[in-house]
């Protein structure tokens, strides 16, 4: 990170004569853009809406959901069985409960985040706003990256708040702590980070929040559909259609598989198939983001 500075002589005697040091460090600009995005999310009530809904869910787990049902079930399962089998069953039962909660939070969190963030990219491209931003000594990729990172930060904070709180509540109520439940935080955030690149691309292309939202949600559904390839491929009657299905499967981000990875991690089953979903999704995200940057670079405002 360059911290080279240049000093411009003070021309404005009417309003102060001290020289101003202008840094050329991109880090300062990056942080300012992130902070601007967080400020906008707060002002638009997206931030509070997202955290408010998460809080409602947390309160539901805290006060309404009878987690002693879990304890009751554990007791019930423990009575007739032998010691070894009981321990195994209890653990598996609780892990399954954790897993269902994690999957729910993964889907809930991702949808909520997409709805909340869809407007944040097009808003910065509004005429009268983007012109002023572009007049600053800031590169266009940096503008987009700062906005992306700011949106991701808001969602990552919400995911952490929601999932960690529910982890603490369940642990506190049941006194059973499965740390692997916390894998839901990075996995949900990673999945959102990939989907957000699509929101960015559509935002740059169309400057429409509604279209960005539609495409992002559609992509999640398509991804889940493509993941059923073992079943679907047998139902397709031509080789080219099977190959097309397979190709799309590898191109599109793997929301479904990432959920499965999370399930396996929580159930302490080795996720045999986790590297490919991660890197193909990441590659998709990088490619789409680069596409958005390329278009943004050439666009007139």
């Amino acid at each position: 990170m360059s911290t080279e500075s240049q000093v411009l002589r003070p021309p404005l005697t009417a309003a102060g004569s001290q020289p101003i040091h202008l840094s050329t460090s991109p880090l300062q600009v990056f942080l300012a853009l992130i902070w601007d995005t967080v400020q906008e999310a707060r002002a638009r009530w997206l931030f509070w809406g997202l955290f408010g809904l998460s809080t409602l869910l947390i309160l539901f787990f805290l006060f309404i959901l009878k987690i002693d049902v879990v304890q009751g079930a554990i007791s019930f399962m423990g009575l007739p069985a032998g010691a070894g089998r009981t321990v195994f069953s209890i653990e598996k039962f609780v892990r399954s409960a954790y897993m269902f909660v994690a999957i729910f939070l993964y889907v809930w969190g991702t949808f909520l985040a997409i709805f909340a963030s869809a407007g944040l990219i097009p808003s910065v491209l509004e005429p009268g706003r983007i012109g002023l931003l572009l007049s600053k000594p800031v590169s266009r990729p940096m503008l987009l990256l700062g906005r992306y990172a700011g949106t991701l930060l808001v969602v990552a904070l919400n995911n952490t708040y929601l999932i960690a709180s529910i982890y603490l509540i369940i642990g506190w109520k049941t006194d059973i702590w499965y740390h692997s439940f916390l894998y839901a935080i990075p996995l949900a955030t990673f999945n959102f980070a990939v989907i957000l690149t699509v929101v960015v691309l559509i935002g740059v292309l169309s400057e429409s929040a509604a279209l960005s939202l539609m495409v992002a949600v559609a992509l999640m559904f398509i991804s889940s559909l493509l993941a059923q390839r073992q079943i679907v491929v047998n139902l397709l009657n031509s080789e080219w259609s099977r190959q097309l299905w397979q190709a799309l499967y590898w191109i599109i981000p793997k929301t479904w598989e990432l959920g499965k990875v999370m399930r396996d991690l929580i159930l302490r089953e080795d996720p045999a198939y986790w590297i490919a979903p991660l890197w193909t999704s990441a590659a998709f995200g990088v490619a789409v983001f680069l596409g958005a940057v390329a278009r943004f670079q050439r666009k007139d405002y």
Binding site: H21, L22, S23, V29, A32, R42, G131, K136
Partner: peptide, 28 residues
């Protein structure tokens, strides 16, 4: 630069807006 038909982010205070654009210009 002062653009025509500018649309400054309304979530800023006056001082906050100056601070943001100053930071983008590289001011400490």
């Amino acid at each position: 630069y002062l653009p025509e038909n500018h649309r400054f982010p309304t979530y800023f205070t006056g001082a906050g807006m100056l601070d943001f654009y100053g930071a983008l210009s590289g001011m400490s």
